[in-house]
Simulated assay, not measured.
Amino acid sequence: MKNLSLFCLTILLLGACKNTKNVTNLNSEQIANNAGKVVKTIFTLEKTACYGTCPVYQLNIFENDSLTFAGERFVGKIGLHSKKLAKGTVAQLSKTFREANFFAFKSSYEANISDLPTTIIAFNDESKKLKITDYHGSPETLKKLEQLLANLVADEVQVKKE
């Protein structure tokens, strides 16, 4: 009987290990998910490619003060990574975005110019959502908001010189 119990326990543990996932196989929502609870994305920031070595990545910031960073090209960390932010970071960022009147910006800033990277920024504030495509010509206030989010992953984006 004792051996049967030990055998069953071993089978249960092996089954539990089978369900363990590597971070690189998860999407950002799954990484930010806390104990099965749905975690809302509050901010996203995406930097697209240019003809040169512009950093290419996507950043998702969640209501639980966590973020995911997906580095694609010309960044210090390639792949999907996550980290916890200081408590209250998302609340402070939300306040800053509201004070900057984020929802008054146009949804697109375009120009007939080639070889610039595009920044796509989005804010999901309770019942309001706005996604902005910033290629060229956006207001300085918007640029500062983009930089606030980008600063959260400065270490991940920075390519280390050897």
Score class of each variant (00 low, 15 high):
T41P: 06
T119K: 10
A70Q: 14
K131V: 07
N34Q: 15
I42L: 01
K21L: 04
L116H: 08
N19P: 02
A91K: 13
E110T: 12
I121Q: 01
L4V: 09
A16L: 14
V38Y: 07
A154N: 15
I31D: 02
G15I: 12
L130E: 00
T68F: 10
T68G: 11
T133A: 01
C17N: 13
T41K: 10
Q30K: 14
R73C: 05
S28Q: 12
F103A: 01
G88H: 07
N151Q: 12
T44S: 08
I121R: 02
A100I: 05
T118G: 07
I121F: 08
N33L: 07
T20Q: 14
E146T: 10
I120T: 06
C50F: 12
D125Q: 02
A86M: 02
I121A: 03
K18M: 09
N19Q: 07
K37C: 02
K77P: 14
V38C: 03
T10I: 15
F123L: 05
Q92E: 01
L9C: 08
A91G: 01
D134S: 14
A35F: 13
K47E: 04
P117Q: 03
K128N: 05
T10D: 14
M1Q: 00
D115P: 08
E46S: 05
T48G: 04
L4G: 03
T44P: 15
F69T: 07
S82D: 07
V56Q: 06
Y57S: 02
K161A: 06
T96V: 01
S28R: 07
D115A: 05
G52R: 05
Q92A: 09
L9W: 08
D134A: 13
F74P: 12
A122V: 13
T24R: 06
L145S: 00
T141F: 01
T118N: 07
N27K: 06
V157W: 03
T118Y: 15
N60L: 11
F7K: 06
G15E: 12
D134Y: 14
V23T: 06
I11Y: 08
K37H: 11
I31Y: 09
H81E: 00
E63Q: 13
L12V: 11
T118S: 12
K2V: 09
